[in-house]
Design a protein around this nucleic acid. Sequence first.
DNA 1: AAACAGGCCTAAA
DNA 2: TTTAGGCCTGTT
Length: 292
Amino acid sequence: MIQTTEIITSGEQNGTVFTKIRRPEHFDIYKIFDCGQCFRFDPSSLGGIEGVAFGRYLRAEQTDTEIILHGCGEDDYRNIWHRYLGLDRDYGQVNREILAELDGDAVMARAMDVGDGIRILRQDMWETLCSFIISQNNNIPRIKKIIDSLCRTLGEPINSPDGRVFYTFPSAETVLDAGQDLIFSLRTGFRAKYIIDAARAFPTLPTRQMCGDMTYGEAQSYLTDIKGVGPKVSSCVLLFGFGRHEAFPIDVWIKKVLDKYYGGNFDPSRIGRYAGVAQQYLFYYERYDENK
DNA sequence: AAACAGGCCTAAA
DNA sequence: TTTAGGCCTGTT
């Protein structure tokens, strides 16, 4: 039984397909797209959050009881967005497991409360790899700007239902064919050569399925073989793109949290198979909670 | 103006 | 195995 995917209605309204589903516990579209895992979705003037993934436009709105997905028919919901949005997982269970592993740790409990509603997206592997290479030694506005110009330059234009133009994320093959000079001209800086190396290596990487049979370290080593991909970027890619929820990326913010609340003596591996979810809670907590 | 930004590489102990 | 310095660029 897949209880978190209950479709209420799916149909067409003013020529636009939509799917409406029951909103499960622990699901907040704003937090999901505001915790740093995705650079291509933003608040929409039409309401909710909109963006492009897997070559498709989506605008998601939420009420207390429903999620409305605009530009999404029933087939796309079942085949793509349901999984993309992490709606195939019971986060009540995830949260309980995290707290149990940490013996009810008070800091984690608080972070979990503040970040409640965050879900780990299952993004496209190439897009995630490329995006997090761009993210290194960089700030979020510029990361978004670079990715946007990459998509405008090399992606395919697609229309939102109301006729605005969006762009898909270019394939690894397209990026490779475009060449390092073109990538550099998009203001990627010293990362241009890394992006090209990643585009070249991408077809040889294990698929998500193959990855499922590997140890974490084994899967990670395939990624860190790519120039410009180290521990942090690879763990982000494994978490957000490869569905490895035990990944625990340590960036400057997380380092700050671990030093501040745990005196630097925190072993992420003791959280267990949902360490990555815990990481997102801590990240969101440190960056966005004004009342801590 | 100098430092910094959601790291990583290379060189050197 | 760990540490220091440099790196494209845009912003403050």
